[in-house]
Design a protein around this nucleic acid. Sequence first.
DNA 1: TATTTTAGAACGATCGTTCGTTTTATTTGC
DNA 2: GCAAATAAAACGAACGATCGTTCTAAAATA
Lengths: 234, 234
Amino acid sequence: MDGDIRFSTFKRDVNLTMVEICREIFRNNSGGIKIQKEEVAVRSLAKILEAALRLCNRKGFASMSLRDLSRESGVSLGAMYSYFSSKDDLLRLMQGHGRSVIVRILEGVISGIDDPWIRLRRSIQAHLYASEVLQPWFYLSYMETRNFPADEFKKALESELYTERMFVDIIMDGQSRGLFRPADAELLGSAIKSMLQDWYLKRWKYTARKVSVEDYGNFMLGFIESYLMDREIS
Amino acid sequence: MDGDIRFSTFKRDVNLTMVEICREIFRNNSGGIKIQKEEVAVRSLAKILEAALRLCNRKGFASMSLRDLSRESGVSLGAMYSYFSSKDDLLRLMQGHGRSVIVRILEGVISGIDDPWIRLRRSIQAHLYASEVLQPWFYLSYMETRNFPADEFKKALESELYTERMFVDIIMDGQSRGLFRPADAELLGSAIKSMLQDWYLKRWKYTARKVSVEDYGNFMLGFIESYLMDREIS
DNA sequence: TATTTTAGAACGATCGTTCGTTTTATTTGC
DNA sequence: GCAAATAAAACGAACGATCGTTCTAAAATA
């Protein structure tokens, strides 16, 4: 449909490789990271974060010991403490990045577009595609929110509400222009979020069924648009 | 609508108090529980499981120490080991029950009903109401699946697929009778599950917004039925 | 050689679990 | 009916393992 985003072009444009992400993390955390040479730091950071995401996704942050992480990443216990100052700090390091990326992507993708139908399609697609590219990050952020230190916990909840609010705003805009049916915009926003989350929380299920990310997005959009166009009921 | 279940009557009929649940757990686990007198066992079990659910929901199973649990429940460390043989066994004890309850309820609620519209409404309402009554159990089961021992992990995934299959079967039945629009029944089943799960995973959000469980169910049903009735698009 | 980075032994705290003891409840003997 | 004897249950100190974290010496880099 008009204005749609294809996953392949999305992936090419955002270019979120592990090394690039680690480079950005390093530059934003030069205070906390004790390593000075960027190339050394980025190489070790990538090994650490890749291993940490793998272990956290498998058994959870609390059950991952730093010895596990040292073994899995190939970086010694002592060396790891040059990249973070505590286990909680490691969580902050892993978590902090994904949030800024998703906001940047979501806002970029609908800026300058007026039609609510297209805004809705594009923001859902962008959210879905971002969670596909950064799946381990999204999964971690969702499952470990409880274990975040207080300030990060608060930010995580705000982030959940912020992205939901984006959808709600688009829906209410469409309604006030008479394009969308009247319906509870907040509940529909929540439903959209929950379906988006299901994609990265249950990847095992969709992978087994050979459902692609574009299949999933198209289903979601058909489902939602059918509801918003419906004028039969109340 | 016809055949709907009200939450208040549901709650009254299933009668799932903590003491009754613990009594059933005790009777099904007489092998593993070393306490002989039912009244003593049920009383302590209720204290232990109530505290364990509270702590697990707050900080996760892995981060809950048995000393935390002892303090919170008022049952000593040693005494607790008369009710389970290891921390993993405690997880099994907490998890095992909910599953049998939900299957029993869901199947009971649609047995003997033929109309797919009513079957769909009733199974969604029953699932939602069960998760409302047993919210801490459902939350735990979802968030801690990764930490289950292998056999329990497998059962948890099967359970997820089993309840989803119930929805898919109803949808496909309705489609083959020409009542529901043609659409991907498996993806719609997944979407229904994800919305049901959002209710017990994000209670904080819905509580803050004063959305009742019946509000939520009505929204879900309107959303889904609008899609299944729609004959405009493909 | 001077500086940066890594390695892994060592430390105190806390974990799950065990176990000998004390407390509580029930049965027995008269 | 009431001690004494026995069984059931609760208790919490103690154990070995493992946790996050620190620190110093060795290795790598320039």
